[in-house]
Amino acid sequence: MLKSFALPVAIALVAAAFALSFWRLLVGPSAPDRILALDTLYINAIALLVLLGIHLSSALYFEAALLIALMGFIGTVAFCKYLLRGDIIE
């Protein structure tokens, strides 16, 4: 039940979420909209990695998810800082 039904459905849902966020990334219309889309994309990537880890029954993907969480957050903060100050490192 888990592997035959729940996992495929969940992966399909997350993939659809990817497509929707990507659409927002392309369409914009403003810079914060695109940053928000990128932020959503990295959270979706974490979700997909966690699902893949369960699917393959391998704990290796956990480190990748952790790294994406760290780097995605720093990226969002850097973009926002740029919009707010016009400079990243003050």
Binding site: L2, F5, A6, A17, F18, R24, S30, L36, I43
Partner: peptide, 28 residues
């Protein structure tokens, strides 16, 4: 197993709804 399936489906559904909101809602 049912608990795991429910958690996974709920998590994926919320992830999907979050991105759907990104597309559907009217302003930033």
């Amino acid at each position: 197993e049912p608990l795991l399936s429910a958690l996974i489906l709920a998590g994926a559904a919320f992830t999907f709804i979050g991105s759907l909101g990104l597309v559907r809602l009217p302003d930033f």
